[in-house]
Design a protein around this nucleic acid. Structure first.
Lengths: 311, 311
DNA sequence: GTCGAGCCATAACTTCAAGTGACATTCCAT
DNA sequence: ATGGAATGTCACTTGAAGTTATGGCTCGAC
């Protein structure tokens, strides 16, 4: 393989027209240039420069090689520039995976903020429930996975690192004609006879929170139906199938035929987290996105508290 | 500057997914690959691969660098291929400079033959009288210059190397109504009273040959007019301005209102030569063209003798 | 003509990086 | 738990890249 450092020497020789001038321009000695060109000719198997007492001229092969050298060296410095760009967050990519309710709330805000700050970083967002999201992380198909209470869902198998973003409290959702709909705040225990609508059937995050909260209130919820989609759940509630808990993040879209009621006891909370590979190298873009996610998490927490006060 | 040999290692690591596999594929030890990648990361100032116990994965920067490496390495092997092509006469160029009468006869034949053999070599042909032709050679604007009797024209200043191609004999050109037109062969001396038409005014090649031949025949020619163009000279002869000598090579176009007569004494001869830079490197293409020119020179000499017998 | 300036080539030497080999370490799978 | 497969580290050898010093060549000026 031709040595590219020697190509750089050759190019300089071609430009300057003599070994000595090229040597000065490269901060080499004339001797070094002479030896490097000789070595390059040995590699190439052909004369590359035509020496004379008044300098040198390129041969056919030399001219051809200089043309290639120009392209190669230009591309090399492009590569260096791109490395700097990536280090300076003017490049790179972040692949995010998020569950649905964050995908519609937290993520749009975080992505908008990030894109404003680092427009050159390529962002992709894919929906997946926490379990699948962490699997994608592990397999290298994602850089950041949003999870809910990963510690309680056996997702935290050493190797996955979890960063807390925000606590997402849950409220009761009742049909408008429910006996308790008139009260501004209710106790969970008052709903012990109702049928319940729970989250994703596999039970991991939201369902577990619901069950644990009911258990803490002293009863086992009778679960009538499972769904991941909080709008669908609201639909079931409105239709009188049962009652449910709905997280603050899902309140951006509330049907007008259901009512949301805060709980008197300290509410169950979804701990929303961002998971990354522990020990895995994190590019500057990923680090920056983690920062943005935490920032947006805090932002949502303060906004949520204002909403809670207003309600 | 990033080291391209290391880029090759990086590319192999990216392709194989592990240092060990890359090492085997490159016939290195795993240790060498590890050290080379570490060095490349030091040069790049960023992590390039994400190590784990089950192999490695590229980081953003690593992926970007591999993309560039692919282009650079491909271009490098393109360069090697082109060098081989030039060495194997599947590339390169030859810049020829020729005086007019060869440019219309010898050169078309030589160029046709050469192009048939080495179609990929770029050929250019420029007209210039011997003096200018050698100047172009010296200044590096031409590779081969056709000359006439360079030794007698002070063109052979050491540094220019001259190769004989063919001897081009000259014949007398007379107007059809000239007293000597009836004789098949004439003596030069019989034309001592006529006015003469000579070649290029600066007198170098053809004019010198004419003058020397007349002197050898015992008289000084009275030169009425100078012209480089043998067709023009024939025109002057036909018009009765004078007589002239015309070289065999110019006989491809003979007007029918003049007659060509061989000389009884051994005829004056134009020694047609190809000049190159002495000691200058000659590319394979130039060497091959020199061979072709000598071959075509011999071809013209044998054809000329047949013509001479027939006349 | 000779002499100096400028150019390239070569030899001897120093220095540094590339690669090897041996070993430690970590992680996953059987 | 233990073996296999991966990476990282250390010490060592070797070869290549530079420097310095020198010589030879050509051209142009005095």
């Amino acid at each position: 393989m031709l040595d590219v450092k020697r190509l750089r020497v050759l190019r300089e020789v071609a430009a300057k027209g003599s070994f000595s001038a090229a040597a000065e321009s490269l901060a080499y000695t004339q001797s070094a240039v002479s030896q490097q060109i000789a070595a390059l000719e040995r590699e190439a198997g052909t004369r590359l420069v035509d020496r004379s007492a008044r300098g040198v001229r390129m041969t056919d092969a030399g001219r051809a090689l200089v043309r290639h050298a120009d392209v190669i060296l230009a591309r090399l410095s492009d590569a260096e520039a791109e490395l700097e760009a990536i280090a300076g967050l003017r490049g790179g990519r972040v692949r995010l995976v998020s569950f649905a309710s964050a995908g519609a709330t937290l993520m749009p805000r975080a992505i908008a903020l990030f894109r404003e700050r680092h427009p050159a970083v390529e962002l992709t967002l894919e929906p997946a429930e926490p379990e699948d999201a962490v699997a994608k992380l592990r397999s290298g198909d994602a850089d950041i996975a949003l999870t809910i209470d990963a510690e309680f869902c056996s997702l935290t198998d050493e190797g996955v690192e979890v960063t807390h973003l925000l606590d997402d409290p849950m409220y009761a959702v009742l049909p408008r004609d429910h006996p308790l709909a008139a009260k501004p705040r209710i106790r969970l225990r008052e709903l012990r006879e109702d049928a319940w609508l729970a989250g994703s059937q596999r039970g991991c995050p939201d369902t577990m929170i619901l069950v644990r909260a009911c258990n803490a209130a002293g009863f086992e919820p009778r679960i009538a139906f499972h769904s991941d989609d909080y709008l669908a759940i609201q639909g079931f509630v409105a239709a009188g199938v049962g009652v449910s808990l709905i997280p603050d993040l899902a309140l951006l879209a509330v049907r007008d035929d259901v009512v949301i009621r805060a709980l008197k006891e300290s509410p169950p909370v979804r701990r929303i987290q961002a998971a990354t590979l522990r020990d895995g190298y994190k590019s500057p873009a990923i680090e920056a996105m983690m920062g943005t996610l935490q920032e947006v998490g805090r932002e949502f927490e303060t906004q949520r508290q204002e909403l809670a006060l207003a309600s």
